[in-house]
Write a protein that binds this DNA or RNA. Sequence first.
RNA 1: GCCGGGGUGGUGGAAUGGUAUACACAGGGGACUUAAAAUCCCUGCUCGCAAGGGCGUGAGAGUUCGAGUCUCUCCCCCGGCACCA
Length: 801
Amino acid sequence: MERYDHQKIEAKWAKIWEKNKTWKVDLAKAKKPYYNLMMFPYPSAEGLHVGNVYAFVGSDIHGRFARMQGNDVFEPMGFDSFGIHSENFAIKQGTHPKEQTTKNITHFTKQLKQLGSLFDWEHSVTTSEPEYYKWTQWLFLQLYKAGLAHKKEAPVEWCPSCKTVLANEQVIEGKCERCSTEVIQKELEQWFFKITKYADRLLKNLEWIDWSEKTKIAQRNWIGRSEGTTIKFKVVDSKYEVEVFTTRVDTLYGATFIVLAPEHPIVDSLKNVKEVQEYVERAKQKTELERKAEGKEKTGIFSGLYAINPLSEEKIPVWIADYALIGYGTGALFGDAHDERDVEFARKYSIPLKPTIITGDKEKDEKILKLKECFIGYGTLVNSGSFTGLSSKEAIIKVREWLIKKGRGGGKVTYHLRDWLISRQRYWGPPIPIIYCVKCGTIPVPEKDLPVLLPDVEDFRPTGTGKSPLASVTSFVETTCPECKGPAKRETDVSDTFLDSAWYFFRYPSVEFEDEPFDKIRTKKWLPVDMYIGGHEHAVLHLLYTRFVTMALKDMGHIEFEEPFLKFRAHGLITKEGTKMSKSKGNVVNPDEYFKTHGADTIRTYLMFIGPLAEGGDWSDKGIVGISRFFNRLWNFQENFKAPKQESNELEVARNQTIKKVTEDLEGLRYNTAIAALMEYSNGFLKNPPTKEQFNTLLILLSPFAPHLTEELWGKLGNKGSVHEQPWPTYDAKALEEKIVRLVVQVNGRVRDILEVSPGIKEKEAVALALKQEKIKKWFPTGKPKNIVFVKGKLLNLVSY
RNA sequence: GCCGGGGUGGUGGAAUGGUAUACACAGGGGACUUAAAAUCCCUGCUCGCAAGGGCGUGAGAGUUCGAGUCUCUCCCCCGGCACCA
């Protein structure tokens, strides 16, 4: 008897599949295109992480399932090789990123091929290759031409360690997404994409795209739409007006002060006031975390200005404080007694407060009016002139109407979402294709001149001067103006990695087209993506950017759809002993070892068995042996296989039930229970030897999980062709019905007996039969239950009260 | 603070309002074996020789013939966002 030698079998099939290009899809001729996408990895030097394996296998199983259901599945893989992550590693190692990346990709590719996935290696992309980033630059130019890319000076987040600016989405709790260093605010001129222009559409489409609910919620919160009112306050003895934003205009009558963000334009006119200047400088230099740490202790300074409350006509002071944020609303707010932050600020600087909202609860209202309690809910207006007596909700409408009529304000919608800052003062990225000419100004690089090649330089380290290392490469910087042919300089920043990954799936099906980023016909056939599986950590990064880019491409007429992924499912996290794997904790599971000791099929199946794909789970070295045993058992079954003289009906029912269960579970990505069902079915082989057909069903259903093993066993059982070319089995609804069922008999809701009966047994018969049983009879001295609940073929509950 | 997701054996986890703990892992017991490995069988706790009871899904209440599942109150854990006016 031969033993199950996973190394031999997996190597054998990997070779055959690669040679025959088994997973190649004819992208031009495919009849039922199905684009199965997974988030491509950045090729780290450590190689494939078990988290990558989890995601890719989860996605591959879906692809294989779709393939067996008759789809032409396109499942590409590539490398997100540009960016700070790759570059930082190269800096640490002292190698050039280009060299390091090439090395890493070679290693990754080798590992990925071991997984036994459907990857079409002829349609791969590497974002750091000029053939790819040429089109990333092209994309920048399209956005520029559409007026969606612009350079502006703005307060931005700066990572002192990565020495570059960051997008808002890349600042996590005041720290750099990549290196966890506290970011600081700087005022710099940078390139932005106007993603905010799409805020409403990004929000609206969430209603219909089929995505994991939690990812949609995260995007909704991030976009953070809020409707409110703007109010223009006249500044006393000045030509200025201050426009403030509020969602609670019902409290306007009680506005007793105004707060401006330190970056507010009016503050600039006060620069001659020494104290103001000092405060503003100090505020700007604080890191975000410092601002937050001080959050409990608000700071501010009186500007010396007064404004007129248009409703109460009172003269109120204008303050400057960093709890007002320049990027939100109008960068200015009014303070009143119904906002905890305002109350705190007013108390600290002894600014008077006037409560204007009460609840109707006498005791509570007394506290509110005496400023012993800060009420922030909706209520009824008091001390509000002609608006007194209105409810908050009515007042919000009425006061706004009044302001509009008087020309003192209007409705406004504001968002938490900010424009996408895409400049990076780094080396390892696509140079932003812009030229600055003294005479002609800002000129985009003509498309025919793309790519703007990233020059090879020796010192690629970030400078920290606010300029990219490219700025010191004279041969790169000095150029001629495409318009006037006079001397000009290139933009020296590179673009954000997230721009590379915002469109990679457009390129996959069109890699052979050298003159365009994505072929029209190809794209129409394959996009949008049918299923996208990836990490939820990209909810407000990649997954938001890519939706914006797709919408913009549609508006520019390049494509006909505006949502890139019809279906997106977030997978969970694989932990070790309950904690996130990380190098510093030394608890990283290296898949290489397990490829050797257990094989790809076992790793694949084990990872999927740990828990539902959406939830992830905990890796355990002990747990994996369960799958090894399962596969050994199957192998030995085959070795000893002998068709029985008579087919077992019990096993045939189980076969149909298993097909149903596994099919439904695969549709819902509940791989863990699908595997359990397959184990259960195969355990039945011990009791009832399977026919070849029954064994084959198991192999077909298991093949997405264990492609090598099932292929081998398929052949060994004497079947022709490949298990992977078999159609997905269907079940016979009639065959699901068992001839004898176990009827649970309860007394007062507690199980007292189980009867084996025919599934069609009638209530009357069942009751009679049950009452004959000693176990049941003794509960009914009178012989008659007071109430009977009967669930056909399943349960009988006899009630004695 | 706000928004999500959870809390079930020693562990990972199963359960359209209908046998709680499927499927595995570990531990314990048994079978096979000269022995070990491998394999197969039993194994929630508790009372009982057994038959048969009782207790068990974070806590408490409720609805129901019947609740892990539905409703309310509370506690705890994980993830995200957060001075957003």
